[in-house]
Design a protein around this nucleic acid. Structure first.
Lengths: 203, 203
DNA sequence: GTCTATATTTGGATAGAC
DNA sequence: GTCTATCCAAATATAGAC
């Protein structure tokens, strides 16, 4: 029997779930372990059976920020890149799905809340959120340049230009949704961006 | 005589200065009134002779976030817009100066730290930081379209594309400088952006 | 206006019974 | 594993002497 283990895991998962919700709404300092505990119906001291301290809860929660399934394998890149616009369309579709996905939204909020309070998050932001995406995009643009599908230039620069707007849209969407405001005006912004950008680089 | 008033104002200004530095580094919750007080060499309780409470200090500090001298008067727009690239060059120069200006940098950091914790800041971000800039840029692009200097399209959309990259560069610069890292790789990004964008829209 | 002293609250963490 | 009880630290804020 593993009822005991099951219950233990159950509580631990509850803690992580509630902590994720609270951290991504009120930030690290704005979230007390008391609040986490009462929210799941246990006393504050009981938390310490599952986690050493508050920070270890946060660390486990924030682990998931950058576990986004965001890489295309090489084959897929090559195939898509030759199709030109289809490549960036594919990329943006992924990005858009992440933006509106409930879990990813929480993680993105948490990232933005703690970005200037947490050096490690800043570095991960640069490497995982920026560099990785730029690299994938730049590879695609490079191939398109070689095949004279898009105008020549620095692929990394082109990728930078492309990803920056995606980030900005995502930030705005996140802010609006945080206040339960409509994102109608922004929902088509992703596609508009693709169209505008493609028009800017195609040959 | 207004020595007393002078001293009062002096302390008040000191408080605001120190509070700005601390809030923009540790955020609202991460900054205690104690720390503000000791930093300027007075006891914590003495602060309450100048401000009602902690929040009122924050409010006075955050007032300055959006007092950036960022609008061009209509005449200047018209003149610059007809010159095409000179217009966006001018805009970006302003933006770049703000990005690297010590005071504006603090204010931007404060904005990013508190953006998801403060609804009013979010709304001001949208109206003052986004809408206002989009409007100015869109007017310029509109005139360029009418004069067949740039390709036709939605001026607001074009402005959105343009400003989003500026914001992203600014954010990255701010993060790097926060960790005292080199911004060499980004210092020319503003100009690269202008070049890339102009190449994308010019006729 | 600033100081000392103090009230009050909140939050993180531990000890020990069940 | 959870509970009650308790400790400790930090932080906001006020009262009253100088």
């Amino acid at each position: 029997m593993n009822t005991e283990q099951y219950r233990k895991t159950g509580t631990k998962q509850k803690i992580l779930k509630v902590a994720t919700a609270l951290f991504s709404e009120y930030g690290y300092k704005g979230t007390s372990v008391r609040k986490i505990a009462t929210e799941i119906g246990i006393k504050q001291s009981a938390l310490y059976n599952h986690f050493e301290n508050k920070e270890s809860i946060f660390l486990e929660v924030s682990k998931d920020i950058f576990t986004t399934p965001f890489t295309f394998d090489d084959e897929e890149i090559k195939q898509s890149a030759l199709k030109g616009k289809a490549f960036i369309n594919k990329f943006v579709l992924q990005y858009k799905l992440l933006t509106f996905d409930k879990n990813n939204e929480k993680m993105f909020r948490l990232l933005m809340i703690e970005l200037l309070q947490n050096k490690e998050l800043r570095e991960q932001f640069m490497s995982e959120f920026h560099d990785k995406n730029v690299k994938v995009l730049a590879e695609g643009f490079f191939m398109m340049m070689q095949n004279s599908i898009v105008r020549s230039g620095d692929p990394m620069m082109m990728a930078y230009e492309f990803i920056s707007t995606l980030f900005y849209i995502r930030l705005q969407v996140t802010l609006l949704r945080f206040d339960s405001k409509s994102t109608d005006m922004l929902s088509t912004q992703f596609e508009k961006h693709v169209d505008f950008f493609w028009e800017s680089i195609k040959l």
